[in-house]
Nucleic acid binder design. Structure first.
Ligand SMILES: [Mn+2]
Ligand SMILES: [Mn+2]
Ligand SMILES: [Mn+2]
Ligand SMILES: [Mn+2]
Lengths: 219, 219
DNA sequence: ATATAGATTTAGACTAACCTAAAAAATAAT
DNA sequence: ATTATTTTTTAGGTTAGTCTAAATCTATAT
């Protein structure tokens, strides 16, 4: 049985691996805000317990066993996020930390009931895909808003859930999942993107646009 | 900040105190299924942290600080139980263990939202009172079914939540909260209680009847 | 090729929980 | 009033998780 702490490590390794193949001690430590020594300790423990393959001085890779846990926790996290929004009226900027704790105290039965109550959702409130009960995850690759061309149109399909501030700001200016927008201009000297959405002209800083992922539409 | 373990100790001390004034080391140990030595350790820790007054060789008593935590956790436990029943279709015999974990990962905000979603319930699915947000608990003293007289009538108002088996059995024979019943007979040689409920004659063992609390009605 | 910087690991220590086995104190029984 | 039993506490040990400081290894730069 995994402890709450171990589950969070495993989940983080999973997300680091998606970019880097190997998850280094220091990247894990930084992501979880613990010392390198602590992360190193945990890698030894997780390796002994078969959750990761630990290659000293290189980093770790999740084993099949580790990946199963990671996807389980990600699934529960995203189901909870959806549940908090749909059943308790939370907005998308308030749910991450709640889900970060709830994900660790969720039985198979509770997971299944939440899934059913939500009518088996495929994405969470940030547009991130929810792994299926048997651990399959279909990642759709959307286009970064920054990379969209002037004149093109698209639908907001995923938003980075890293920063509550960004999410709150987007909510305030009326941008959310499924919002349709058109890129009316791209300012070359500072990288700003000017979009039209909800019949409004909205300027977005490059840092903000970096948080928004688009499904292009031809319209 | 309290750990999950400490919260469970505090909650248990609270419930023991309701009968015994002092909670002895061994009573706590037995209730939480840990060794006496472990419980003794924890009493020292809780006492240092001001949650209990520890009188060596006698036992502990919750301080005001401890009582506040106890009631907070009890509140969250019972709100979650109600929520699981009302929003996720759980039955009253399946909810205790889920709530036992969820109670520890519930923020003020989540607690408030659940409370609101349930329209501010005053009792949980077992008829136990839910402490208010500011820590008030109104205990209604019901009559034990065993103590009801032959010929008297009443409404099931509280059921012991100690055993899921009992709860499941009661569900199966059609007895639940608010069920109206009449004591048609009391068998002296084994202590059985024969009741009439839902137009059926139902015999209840003394052990079972001990789990049922009645609000008498004159009818 | 060697020095320096950066990342990783080890060493040693701490806290919260837990355990078993033994000691000490309080109760109950003779 | 002793003795026996039960309860409580202490002593000593374990595991998970954390830390800082020191050591070691790797990669980069001159
Ligand atoms: Mn988490
Ligand atoms: Mn999310
Ligand atoms: Mn609990
Ligand atoms: Mn209950």
């Amino acid at each position: 049985m995994e402890t709450i702490t171990a589950e969070d490590y495993i989940k983080r390794i999973y997300s680091i691996e998606r970019h880097s193949n190997f998850a280094s001690t220091s990247s894990i430590a930084k992501a979880l805000e613990v010392s390198d020594a602590s992360a190193n300790d945990m890698m030894k423990r997780l390796s002994e317990q078969g959750y990761v393959k630990y290659i000293p001085r290189k980093g770790v890779q999740l084993t099949k066993k580790g990946k199963i846990i990671a996807l389980k926790i990600v699934r529960r996290h995203r189901l909870w996020e959806m549940f908090l929004v749909k059943f308790l009226g939370y907005s998308w900027d308030e749910i991450h930390n709640e889900a970060e704790r709830l994900e660790h105290v969720t039985s198979e039965s509770l997971e299944a009931r939440i899934d059913k109550a939500l009518n088996f959702p495929t994405v969470d409130p940030h547009g991130d895909p929810i792994p299926t009960a048997n651990g399959e995850l279909i990642e759709t690759e959307y286009q970064l808003l920054n990379d969209c061309e002037k004149g093109s149109a698209g639908i907001i399909s995923r938003v980075s859930d890293k920063s509550p501030e960004v999410l709150q700001y987007l909510k305030n200016i009326g941008l959310g999942l499924q919002t349709k927008l058109k890129i009316v201009d791209k300012i070359s000297f500072d990288g700003s993107i000017i979009v039209k959405a909800n019949k409004q002209i909205i300027p977005l800083s490059p840092k903000l646009a970096q948080c928004i992922f688009i499904q292009p539409v031809t319209a």
